[in-house]
Amino acid sequence: MAEQDLRNLLKQLHQSLGSHNYTQSTSLLSRAKIALLKLNALIPSPQTSQPHLRLAREALELGALTSIHLKDPESFTRYFQQLQPFYSLPEDVLPREGGNASKITGLYLLLLLSMGDYAGFHTLLESLEVAAAQAREHGRGGKGLEDDVFIQYPIRLEQALMEGAYDKVWGETTSERVPSEEFGVFSEVLINTIRSEIASCSERAYSSVPIANCKNLLFLDSEGAVVQFARQRDWIAKDGRIYFPQHNQDLMGSEKDILVTSDKVIENTLGYARELETIV
């Protein structure tokens, strides 16, 4: 009875996610976990049957996707961790087919990236590369990381961030290259991270910047948005310019070195932003 209840709940979960009714999804997930507990399938064991393993994996993956839509990174992280014992099972115990390990893992990589956890990002990526190499050694083949759109998307973003190529990040998060709706949820977080980094460079490199340039520099939609952003950072908007009050304090004798690095980032980003205006 519990198995049939769980199947019905999962069907309703798919429907609620499809209709963006995430409040209902959360309620259904709680009931699905209770059903999994009754089946002793919430944590895989040698006694757990393959059908129950499949149902448990599906329920947890739906929970992870719901957490993404609710913009709840802590909940998503818990689901990702709960899924790892299922993802590590041998193919003959729980086939990869029918699951969303690639998508969930790609989303977790993107979460690490949006939080600036580059060490965690590369640690996970290295483990994926090792697992892929071992699979090839044992003749299991399958899709390689280089062909996995869900894994390659965060890899491209990380490379662009490391290069300071913020135009590429902006383009990736605002184009059809986003692999799925869930990946698009991170675009706002990533762009805010970029804005913060550029803003920090700007206030160290310059005493002031024209508001029009600042709009392009920070990927903001209007000069009014620039003024609002400036207030959040205690900048001063006056006479068509943004003034950085902490500029002289921050430099403290090392202005030359900071200007060399910051100017390069800012000039490149301004050029990228102007180019984007002709595209977006």
Rank of each mutant, 00 (worst) to 15 (best):
S127V: 08
G139Q: 08
Q50M: 14
S200F: 15
P179A: 06
F86R: 01
Y87P: 10
H122S: 11
L60T: 10
R156E: 13
I191A: 12
P44A: 13
L10C: 10
L125N: 01
D221G: 10
T123R: 06
D263G: 11
H14T: 14
Q84F: 11
S16H: 04
P51R: 02
C214E: 06
G63A: 11
L65H: 02
G63F: 00
R31V: 05
T66S: 06
G63L: 08
W170V: 12
T23A: 15
S114Y: 02
V178C: 11
R136V: 15
D147C: 08
A56L: 05
W235R: 02
V227Q: 02
L60N: 05
T269Q: 05
R136F: 11
K238Y: 14
N40Y: 00
S127T: 01
L29S: 10
G144Y: 05
L55E: 11
V189P: 07
E203S: 14
I258Y: 10
A165L: 03
E275N: 15
L111F: 02
M115N: 01
V265D: 04
Q249D: 09
V189R: 06
R274Y: 13
S49D: 12
L83R: 00
R241P: 06
N192H: 08
L220Q: 01
Q134H: 13
D263C: 08
Q84D: 09
L128P: 01
L94V: 13
A119C: 11
L36R: 04
S262N: 03
G120H: 00
L10M: 05
H138K: 14
S262V: 12
P179H: 08
A160P: 00
L89S: 04
I266P: 07
Q249H: 07
Q50E: 11
E172A: 15
Y79N: 03
G116E: 11
F150T: 03
S208T: 06
N213V: 03
V130M: 05
V209K: 02
M162P: 04
L109T: 08
A132E: 01
D167T: 01
L37G: 15
E197K: 09
S222R: 02
Q50Y: 05
R7P: 04
E58K: 15
G224W: 00
M252N: 14
S102W: 03
L110N: 03
L17R: 05
E277C: 10
R54P: 09
F219E: 04
N8F: 14
K264P: 07
K71H: 13
R78H: 07
A237Y: 03
L220N: 01
E255P: 06
N213P: 00
D117Q: 01
G106C: 05
G63W: 04
N100R: 06
P210Y: 02
Y206W: 14
S222Q: 03
D263P: 03
E58D: 15
D92L: 11
G240M: 05
P95L: 04
H122P: 05
R177T: 13
I104Y: 02
G63H: 03
N248G: 13
G18Q: 00
S25V: 02
N100D: 12
F86T: 12
G271T: 10
E172K: 07
H14F: 12
P46S: 11
F121D: 06
L270P: 04
P73V: 10
P210R: 03
V149A: 12
Q47M: 14
I104N: 06
